[in-house]
């Protein structure tokens, strides 16, 4: 009995407890709690401005850069409180990767895009191997293997986004946060990224914000519905989409608002 409890606890890689986020006086996140299991894909959905990005950014302390932002509550990553006094946010960000809404490769070569992160974190292994491995995992290798030293800006939008994912993967993170990674992409590139996410979830835990209901349905194991800073409902994706228990969730999913 106790063994099984331990096991399920072990599987929880991120636990959020009563998280509040304020921008100045304004509260953007109201007492959100959740547990995310290792190796799963969690989709955060909800209408624009409901606080999905804010929530996501508090999971790797990117909100530290917003002067007015204040976070209270606990985020336990492998049992350790990210907002604890002894935690170094820089150290932390090297373990929790992030992919942004707009592809934002560095103005450097494809190769250096991959190696920059590991290098500033003290990586001194074989960079060729690292680049190949990361690009392969991001299924970009075949397209760029002959031009690794070209500028990353020569790539298409979809390729750039996969490069950004490869860049995050190169750090060998446990968790990858993605904030609407497909919103700037065409359907085919979106398809590519979705396939990639399904591919990656065996190795990494992925938390993805998306506005695309179908996408959430296709790729995620669990879905969290946010509304006006509250976590309204969450559960298995299939259950949320077929049989939501809250009226608001149903309205949103069926496209009646949002």
């Amino acid at each position: 009995m106790s063994a099984s409890v331990n096991k399920s606890e072990e599987q929880v890689i991120l636990e959020v407890r009563d998280l509040d986020v304020f921008y100045g006086q304004k509260q953007a996140i109201h007492s959100v709690s959740m547990q995310i299991k290792k190796g799963t894909v969690a989709a955060l959905i909800g209408p624009s401005g409901c606080g999905k990005s804010t929530f996501l950014r508090s999971l790797n302390r990117m909100n530290d850069f917003v002067g007015t932002a204040k976070v209270t509550g606990d985020v336990l990553y492998k049992g350790q409180n990210l907002y604890g006094k002894k935690v170094d946010p820089v150290e932390l960000r090297s373990q929790i990767g992030m992919v942004f809404q707009k592809p934002n490769p560095f103005p450097k070569s494809i190769y250096k895009n991959i190696t920059w992160g590991p290098k500033v974190n003290g990586f001194d292994g074989d960079t060729d191997l690292l680049v190949e491995k990361s690009l392969k995992r991001a299924s970009l290798w075949d397209e760029v293997k002959d031009r690794l030293h070209d500028s990353a800006f020569d790539l298409s939008g979809g390729q750039q986004q996969r490069l950004c994912i490869a860049r995050a993967i190169a750090m060998n993170p446990d968790v990858i946060l993605m904030d609407e990674p497909c919103s700037a992409l065409d359907p085919r590139s979106t398809q590519g990224i979705e396939d990639l996410i399904s591919e990656l979830k065996r190795r990494y835990t992925i938390i993805i914000v998306t506005h695309n209901m179908q996408q959430a349905g296709r790729i995620s194991d669990e879905t969290y519905f946010f509304h006006e800073g509250h976590l309204v409902e969450f559960g298995e994706t299939k259950q949320i989409f077929t049989n939501p228990s809250k009226k608001k969730t149903e309205d949103y999913i069926t496209g009646r608002f949002g």
Partner: peptide, 10 residues
Amino acid sequence: LREAAYALGA
């Protein structure tokens, strides 16, 4: 660009 760099633990 800065965010991308910080997100890599720089």
